[in-house]
Design a protein around this nucleic acid. Structure first.
Lengths: 149, 149
DNA sequence: CTTTCTGCAAAGTGTTTGCAAAAAC
DNA sequence: GTTTTTGCAAACACTTTGCAGAAAG
């Protein structure tokens, strides 16, 4: 498991230890497909090991983010979210505001246009966050004209 | 004050009342230039009227957002932020990760590329959030190579 | 006068921290 | 054996809510 190796290398590098709990959280994280809140991750980790503590999950997900395995994202309702970052390349999100469906996409034209913006302002690129909101085909078809739930 | 009119219209429309406290929060919000957390807004409102309550500020900023005067944005560290939305048109943010400098920009190429993404996936556009992170010219010049403070 | 609003303080989230026992090295 | 880690529970930051008195319409 490449991700495990990555985590172990990261830990060893900093004089930290590879523990069962950390491996459990990693497995829980890898098992969940996308955008997980820390609490969802906690639930999943508990399924793998009911004795795991909440604090451990919070501490470990930060570690994963630091090790480059998880990427942090912020959600409107306050809860932080994490998504896979290892070998997942960069992508942005297209989200349906009605049903919550999420499409991950990668668009060269957007990336290039962003580079141009950086240049125009003399900034050195250092990552970005893009979320496109709208209605998915299904919701747009079923009378999505009104924004109400 | 156009914003005040807008708020009053919004309130009247929903059978709500235009109160001193609400006007205070509005003035505080307009007085602060950009990205404000609710707590900063609370501080500012208190400066205008020391007797104002925290809950009122929280309640009112939501009202402002709903009335189209403020726009909600999420920040990595959990605290929600608000920025001016009235007559501010759409814009995105270019932010220096080192000194926090923020440039608001609007780029047609990006907007057009986004439209294309919506079309490609059959989504109906409904707003987006874009944040470009990097180093501003000043920070890039002063040895910005290392991300440390 | 009736309805909405306010400030307070208490409750509610989601997240972090202190600690002694336990695990990793 | 020494150091880091763990789970628990309490603390913490930010936001919301219940309520009786006050203000707006």
């Amino acid at each position: 498991m490449e991700e495990r190796d990555r985590l172990e290398a990261y830990l060893r590098d900093r004089g930290l230890k590879m523990t069962v709990a950390r491996e459990t959280v990693l497995r829980a994280f890898l098992g969940l497909e996308r955008h997980v809140s820390a609490e969802e991750l906690y639930d999943e980790a508990r399924r793998l090991d009911p004795s795991i503590g909440q604090a451990t999950v919070f501490r470990t997900i930060k570690l994963l983010a630091d090790a480059g395995l998880a990427r942090e994202a912020c959600r409107d309702d306050g809860a932080r979210q994490y998504e896979h970052a290892w070998k997942h390349g960069h992508h942005d999100h297209l989200m349906c505001v009605r049903c919550g469906a999420v499409v991950e996409f990668q668009d060269d034209a957007i990336e290039r246009a962003q580079e141009a913006v950086y240049s125009a302002h003399g900034y050195v690129p250092g990552g970005h966050r893009l979320e496109l909101l709208g209605l998915c085909p299904a919701c747009a078809g079923t009378g999505g004209g009104k924004g109400s739930a």
